[in-house]
Simulated scan of single mutants.
Amino acid sequence: QVHHMDAHVGGTYKMSFRNFGTGSSHSFGGEYVELVPFEKIRYSDRFDNPNLPGQMHATISLRQVSCGTELTIVQEGIPEVIPVEMCYLGWQESLVQLAKLIEPEIPD
Rank of each mutant, 00 (worst) to 15 (best):
V2Q: 10
V2T: 10
V2S: 06
H3L: 13
H4L: 12
H4G: 09
M5P: 01
M5A: 08
D6N: 13
D6S: 11
A7V: 11
V9A: 08
G10T: 08
G10R: 09
G10I: 06
G11E: 08
T12V: 14
Y13P: 01
Y13E: 03
Y13Q: 06
Y13V: 07
Y13D: 04
S16F: 15
S16D: 07
S16H: 13
R18P: 03
R18A: 15
R18M: 15
N19S: 12
F20A: 12
G21M: 11
T22S: 10
G23C: 13
G23D: 08
G23W: 10
S25Q: 10
S25A: 13
H26C: 02
H26D: 02
H26M: 09
S27R: 04
G30Y: 14
G30C: 12
G30R: 12
E31V: 15
E31P: 07
E31W: 09
Y32G: 07
V33K: 09
V33W: 01
L35E: 01
V36P: 01
V36N: 04
V36E: 06
P37E: 03
F38V: 13
E39Y: 06
E39V: 07
K40V: 06
I41L: 10
I41C: 05
I41M: 04
D45I: 03
D45H: 14
R46K: 12
F47R: 03
N49L: 02
P50G: 01
P50A: 02
P53E: 03
P53A: 02
P53C: 04
G54C: 12
G54T: 10
G54F: 13
Q55M: 08
Q55R: 07
M56A: 10
M56E: 08
H57L: 13
A58E: 04
A58F: 09
T59L: 10
I60L: 14
I60E: 01
S61W: 05
S61A: 12
L62S: 01
R63N: 02
Q64R: 15
S66C: 07
S66W: 04
C67P: 00
G68P: 03
T69Y: 13
L71W: 14
L71H: 11
T72V: 15
V74T: 08
G77F: 11
G77A: 09
I78N: 00
I78P: 00
P79M: 09
P79Q: 11
E80Y: 04
E80K: 11
E80P: 00
V81S: 05
I82Q: 00
P83Q: 07
P83R: 03
V84A: 06
M86P: 00
C87D: 00
C87K: 00
C87S: 01
Y88A: 03
Y88K: 09
L89H: 05
E93A: 13
E93I: 06
S94T: 03
S94A: 08
Q97L: 14
L98R: 08
K100D: 01
I102A: 07
E103N: 13
E103Y: 15
P104T: 10
P104H: 12
D108C: 08
